[in-house]
């Protein structure tokens, strides 16, 4: 079976994880969860995975139960320590990697989980809420923005509301000016593309095209002007080992292959 876009996204995320990293896996982010688990079961056995406030040892698991429901006490069987949410909030400045979703993501990597519209009391669409993202993304060493919908509806010029600050209104010193200690968003990962942020302006830039998408398709489906570099490199395809672990142990049900 050919590699799906969601599998490529998971493989890319997996490669961002260093062995030993402290990572918190967020709610309702099955693709990032798959990426983190793939890293853990391949090159990052010493990563510290925090799921639902349990520190878990998942290195020897045959297969993972459920990528879709993190707030699930079944993960307790893998727990080697439990932290209160308060202790987790206190430890965010230690955290190496986290993931943020968004119903809107703007040119500078600010995200919105609050709602769409101009009047907060009369929204066109009310989102689920910020969950832990505002504080985590202010403080975590680096983070990745994830969406399953690469369209002008999600990738917008300006978010209607902001639940997290990425690079604010742009510039490499944007976060320093706000006094935010965390390292900010590194990549935006969509089913069509991997995007990063230009070094000086921090405007979103195309890094990799995920097949079968094309540059034209990506540009047409982005609600603002993306920075397009002169030469676009190809993402290194998944190795046999990455694909095998992903399909047999991380995602045996085939959620990322459109099966579950």
């Amino acid at each position: 079976m050919p590699v799906t876009a969601q599998e490529l996204m998971a493989v890319f995320m997996s490669r961002q994880v260093n062995n030993g990293d402290y990572i918190s896996v967020g709610t309702n982010l099955p693709v990032p969860t798959a990426g983190v688990l793939l890293a853990h079961l391949t090159h990052a056995p010493d990563a510290k995975l925090n799921i639902l406030s349990y520190f878990t040892n998942l290195t020897d698991i045959d297969r993972f139960d459920d990528l879709t429901q993190i707030a699930n006490p079944r993960v307790a069987k893998w727990a080697e320590a439990v932290m209160s949410m308060e202790a987790m909030v206190n430890a965010i400045t230690r955290m190496d990697i986290c993931f943020a979703g968004g119903i809107q993501i703007d040119r500078y990597g600010n995200t919105n989980l609050i709602g769409i519209g101009s009047d907060p009391d009369n929204l066109k669409f009310r989102g689920p809420g910020s969950v832990g993202t505002s504080t985590v993304m202010a403080l975590v060493k680096k983070y990745y923005i994830f969406t399953n919908d690469h369209s002008p509806r999600t990738l917008v010029e300006k978010c209607d509301f902001r639940s997290t600050v990425g690079w604010d209104r742009g510039g490499a010193d944007a976060r320093v000016k706000l006094g935010l200690p965390g390292g900010g968003p590194q990549y935006v990962i969509t089913p069509k593309a991997i995007l990063d942020f230009a070094e000086t302006t921090k405007a979103m830039r195309l890094k990799y095209v995920l097949p079968p998408a094309s540059v034209e398709e990506i540009v047409a489906n982005t609600g603002f002007e993306l920075v397009i570099p002169g030469k676009i490199e190809e993402m290194k395809p998944p190795t046999e080992e990455e694909l095998r672990v992903l399909r047999t142990r991380v995602d045996p049900k085939g959620l990322l292959r459109g099966k579950a």
Binding site: N112, P120, S134, T135, V136, A138, R162, S163, G179, L180
Partner: peptide, 13 residues
């Protein structure tokens, strides 16, 4: 103080 709210819409809302 709460750093998570800095730069977000939370103070307006």
């Amino acid at each position: 103080p709460v750093m998570g709210a800095v730069g977000t819409s939370l103070p307006e809302l």
